[in-house]
C-alpha cells in the first residue's frame, strides 16, 4: 500500500517533468532531422511557464472547467498505470480527459474549434478500439487486465505480441497527434484548422492542456514499456527506439485525412490483431 502511494505521488510529480523533457528532446531531434538547430531542451517548460503567466481568455467558462478536468483525467490515468491498476480502467479514465477536452472545444462557437472537436472525436474513434484490442491481447497472454500481472511475466510480451506492438504504435501516433495523423490539432499550426481542438483554449488553460499532454506522453511510453516488462534496460531501449521511430515517421509523412485514418486504423488494426491472435493460438 505504502509503495503504491509513493508510486502514485511519483507519477503525479515526476511524470509531467519527464514528459516535458521528452517533448523537448522530441522538438530538438525533429529540428535536427530538418537540418535545423532546434530549441533548448527545456523549451516546453518555458512555454508552459509563459502560458501560465498569460491573461486568461475564454469564450465561455466551460472551457476552463474542461481544461482542468482534462489534466485531472490524464494525471489520474498515469497514476493508475504506475500503481499497477487495470489496463481497461486506465483507458477509461483517459477517456474522461479526452472527452472533456472535446467538450471544451465544442463549447466554443468558433468553427475551427468545433471541427477540431469533431475530428478529435474521430481520432478517438480510431485509436480507442485499437487500444482496447491491445489490452485484450495483453490480457490474453497474461490472463489478466491488471498491469501488475504484466510484470509477473517471465518473458517480454513483445515475443508473443509483435504485431500488437505495431497496432499500439499506430494507436499512439493517433493519440499523440503525430504526423501522418495530426488531424485534429497540429503542434505547428500550419494546418487548415489553425490549432484545431486547441484553438479556443488559451493562456493558463492551454498550459493545462500542455501539461496534460506531458502526462499522456508518459502514459503512452509506459504502455510501450509494458512490452518489455522483464528488464528496466529493455524497457528504456524499447521506449527510446519506439519514440525515435515515431519522430522519424512524424517527419517523413504528409498529413493524411481522417477518412483515410479511420479506414486504415480500423483495417490495419483488425488485420494485425487477427494475425497476431492466430499466431498466438498456433503457439
Amino acid at each position: 500500500m505504502i509503495t503504491k502511494i509513493i508510486l502514485a505521488i511519483l507519477a503525479l510529480v515526476a511524470a509531467p517533468l519527464l514528459g516535458a523533457l521528452i517533448t523537448g528532446v522530441d522538438r530538438r531531434i525533429t529540428a535536427w532531422l530538418q537540418s535545423r538547430y532546434g530549441p533548448p531542451i527545456l523549451q516546453p517548460i518555458y512555454d508552459v511557464l509563459k502560458l501560465l503567466g498569460k491573461e486568461p481568455m475564454v469564450t465561455n467558462t466551460w472551457q476552463a472547467l474542461c481544461a482542468y478536468v482534462y489534466i485531472v483525467g490524464a494525471a489520474l490515468s498515469v497514476v493508475l498505470l504506475f500503481t499497477g491498476s487495470d489496463l481497461l480502467l486506465i483507458f477509461f479514465v483517459l477517456t474522461v480527459g479526452a472527452v472533456f477536452l472535446v467538450m471544451g472545444a465544442l463549447a466554443s462557437p468558433s468553427p475551427y474549434s468545433q471541427i477540431g472537436g469533431q475530428r478529435e472525436l474521430l481520432q478517438m474513434l480510431a485509436y480507442e478500439p485499437l487500444l482496447i484490442l491491445v489490452f485484450a491481447a495483453i490480457a490474453m497472454v497474461t490472463g489478466s487486465f491488471k498491469v501488475s500481472a504484466v510484470f509477473e511475466q517471465t518473458r517480454p510480451l513483445l515475443y508473443d505480441l509483435p504485431l500488437m506492438y505495431i497496432v499500439l504504435g499506430y494507436a499512439l501516433t493517433i493519440k499523440l497527434r503525430k504526423s501522418p495523423f495530426d488531424i485534429s490539432a497540429s503542434a505547428h499550426a500550419h494546418q487548415e484548422l489553425v490549432r484545431g481542438v486547441y484553438t479556443e483554449y488559451s493562456g493558463p488553460f492551454l498550459a493545462m492542456i500542455e501539461i496534460a499532454h506531458w502526462y499522456e506522453v508518459i502514459l503512452v511510453l509506459g504502455l510501450c514499456a509494458l512490452f518489455w516488462s522483464t528488464s528496466v534496460v529493455g524497457m528504456v531501449v524499447l521506449v527510446a527506439v519506439t519514440y525515435l521511430a515515431e519522430i522519424i515517421v512524424d517527419n517523413v509523412t504528409a498529413r493524411l485525412t481522417w477518412r483515410f485514418m479511420l479506414k486504415s486504423a480500423v483495417g490495419m488494426g483488425l488485420v494485425l490483431t487477427l494475425v497476431n491472435m492466430l499466431w498466438l493460438y498456433a503457439q
Binding site: Q34, S35, S179, H190, N251, V252, A254, R255
Partner: peptide, 10 residues
Amino acid sequence: AFGFESLFMQ
C-alpha cells in the same frame, strides 16, 4: 499545406 513540415524545410 498537406502537413509535411520537414519537406517544407528542405
